[in-house]
């Protein structure tokens, strides 16, 4: 048995299906019993924090490495511009311009420069914050305006949590929506992935893409159906056909929508939801340890 925490990632093919609601409720529910960390990896739109008011216990900047022009050393050979596939380095006559937001930190221009005129330096890309509300640790990163590369920040945020909360039993990741690179980065070292969807044609369509993505990554996964009762049974039928466990069906209710809209935790008001969370958690923990399948 390993001592590292069980990493549960909560993802969905499309936005607005209840990903953040599930992540915040699950984390708060666990925190009633034991210490837990919730990591918001939706670094472009971190929203989990809107549901918690905690004490800020740590804050640090996120950085990436970019080249910086050392003019006296430059011979204007043009190689840096030529090797940059991202057009982040331009040579305009007797000037070299570096565009930090476009740079992918591949180091090619810096290391291939024959006169070392482009040393790498670190540049701030955003901010990581770590909050505490009793047993609940909440970590989020926020990209600075204009920064577009979510992936390095996601990776850094996970690393922070892994280093600081390795002693806990459970880590929860609130992932970005979609199936593109940020989701891959957010889920790639998770032990179990919960996909949350709605029983509608849109929900089903996006769920199939999300399942395909998680299969590519070979992740054990389960589905939570939110707003169960609306739409049709196509999502349920699909999961059965594909042999994917449905972890819970959260009933459709106006009351839940109202609680969510005011930023309130749902399970504290609706006992039925509390029971569902307990079932989801049990399954995830067993599956993470490999006790299922």
């Amino acid at each position: 048995m390993t001592n590292s925490p069980a990493r549960i990632a909560i993802a969905s093919g499309k936005g607005g299906t209840g990903k953040t609601t599930l992540a915040t409720n699950l984390a708060a529910y666990i925190a009633e019993q034991e210490e837990v960390v919730l990591v918001d990896l939706d670094v472009e739109e971190p929203n989990s924090g809107l549901f918690f008011k905690g004490d800020l216990i740590h804050e640090e900047s996120n950085f990436k490495m970019i080249p910086q022009w050392d003019e006296p050393k430059c011979t204007f050979c043009g190689l840096c511009q030529k090797v940059c596939n991202f057009h982040a380095v331009l040579q305009l006559g007797p000037t070299i311009l570096v565009f930090p937001e476009l740079c992918h930190s591949c180091y090619a221009c810096s290391e291939l420069c024959p006169t070392d005129a482009l040393p790498m330096i670190s540049k701030r890309t955003g901010k990581l914050s770590d909050f505490r509300i009793n047993n609940l640790h909440f970590v989020e990163s926020r990209l600075d305006v204009g920064e577009e590369q979510a992936v390095p920040t996601i990776s850094k945020t996970k690393q922070y949590s892994n280093e600081n909360y390795a002693h806990l039993r459970i880590e929860i990741y609130d992932c970005p929506p979609g199936t593109s690179c940020p989701v891959i980065e957010a889920t790639k070292n998770a032990d179990f992935v919960i996909l949350i969807t709605e029983p509608t044609p849109f929900g089903l369509h996006d769920l199939t893409l999300a399942i395909e993505t998680m299969r590519t990554l070979k992740k054990p996964m389960g589905v939570v159906v939110n707003r169960y009762g609306i739409g049709n049974d196509a999502v349920i039928d699909y999961c059965q056909k594909e042999n994917i466990t449905i972890l819970a069906k959260i009933p459709n209710s106006r009351r839940i929508a109202e609680l969510y809209s005011s930023g309130k935790l749902i399970y504290q008001e609706i006992p039925e939801v509390k029971e569902l969370l307990s079932n989801i958690l049990d399954y995830c923990l067993k599956a993470s340890k490999g006790d299922i399948e």
Partner: peptide, 15 residues
């Protein structure tokens, strides 16, 4: 057809 940096690449051409 560039995925990234189309603006700076075109600026280079203009230059």
């Amino acid at each position: 057809n560039e995925a990234h940096g189309a603006g700076t690449a075109t600026a280079q051409k203009i230059f």
